[in-house]
């Protein structure tokens, strides 16, 4: 028996918004310690890694490890039926071919149940090595989304350049060029407004606008985003999911431009 109950059901709705444009389907690996999801987008350019720890759930039970292959378009349709303040429970029998979503209104007066068919997915699991990154940049997630959106008007790629002074985002195309520099912030009233650069070596890498913009669909999950970069390795874009876990997007840098 698998059962995971989340009083803050809106988090699960936001997680779905953060992955559904990138992935058509994905396997949810449910184990004693929590739920993991790892999947590449259709073009195999980026990788999504989602981690939801059992401690973050209000109730979590997983007697045996189960892998639930889900069509994310279908799951997204179902989660759209949950209100933002609903309590969401996911449950499945050990060898079931369906998963059930239960939505309870806060006052328990409305309870909705949706059963969804599971899929057998044959997806490659990739081992992501522990990496020491040369540059780790923390910035407000809304600011990062705004920068990606603004720069995508100029070209298909964004150059991210990190030095000890701060971080620079640039794009160039037919209409001209754009450069946005963010300096490290001094003292800020709210921690989430800070721009923090932890740099060992300066790094400049070029990434696809299209994918960065898809990652920013996770913005509602967290006020801050963390970018980790090293030369010639994938960028990591990480959003914390409340106290429950995180979503990380890995994106291969562009080469040869």
């Amino acid at each position: 028996m698998f059962e995971a109950r989340l009083v803050q059901g809106s988090l699960l709705k936001k997680v779905m918004e953060a992955i559904k444009d990138l992935l058509n389907e994905a396997s949810f690996d449910c184990a004693h310690s929590g739920i993991l999801l790892q999947a590449m987008d259709n073009s195999h350019v980026s990788l999504v890694s989602l981690n939801l720890r059992k401690e973050g759930f209000d109730k979590y039970r997983c007697d045996r490890n189960i892998v639930m292959g889900m069509n994310l378009t279908s799951m997204s349709k179902i989660l759209k039926c949950a209100s933002n303040d609903d309590i969401i429970t996911m449950k499945a029998q050990d060898s079931a071919d369906t998963v059930t979503f239960v939505f309870e209104s806060p006052n328990q007066e409305k309870v909705s149940e949706y059963e969804m068919k599971l899929m057998n997915l044959d997806q490659d699991q990739l081992g992501i090595p522990e990496t020491e990154y040369c540059c780790i940049i923390k910035l407000p997630s809304g600011e990062f989304a705004r920068i990606c959106r603004d720069l995508s008007q100029f070209g298909e790629s964004i150059v991210i350049s990190c030095t000890k002074e701060g971080v620079k985002f640039s794009a160039a195309g037919d209409i001209g060029t754009a450069n946005i520099k963010l300096a490290q912030t001094g003292t800020v009233d709210k921690e989430e407004d800070a721009v923090i650069v932890d740099m060992q070596e300066p790094v400049t890498l070029t990434f696809s606008c299209k994918y960065l913009n898809m990652f920013t669909k996770a913005t509602p999950l967290s006020p801050q985003v963390c970018l980790s970069m090293s030369p010639d390795v994938p960028l990591v874009v990480e959003y914390k999911i409340g106290e429950i876990g995180h979503i990380r997007y890995y994106l291969a840098p562009r080469i040869g431009d």
């Binding site: 590449m40 073009s43 195999h44 350019v45 980026s46 990788l47 490659d124 699991q125 990739l126 081992g127 992501i128 090595p129 790629s157 070029t206 696809s208 390795v233 994938p234 890995y250 994106l251 291969a252 840098p253 562009r254 080469i255 040869g256 431009d257």
Partner: peptide, 14 residues
């Protein structure tokens, strides 16, 4: 102009 590398060229299958 530029080429996009695949993500699975960086990580090994497990």
């Amino acid at each position: 102009p530029f080429q996009q590398r695949k993500i699975n060229s960086f990580f090994r299958k497990v």
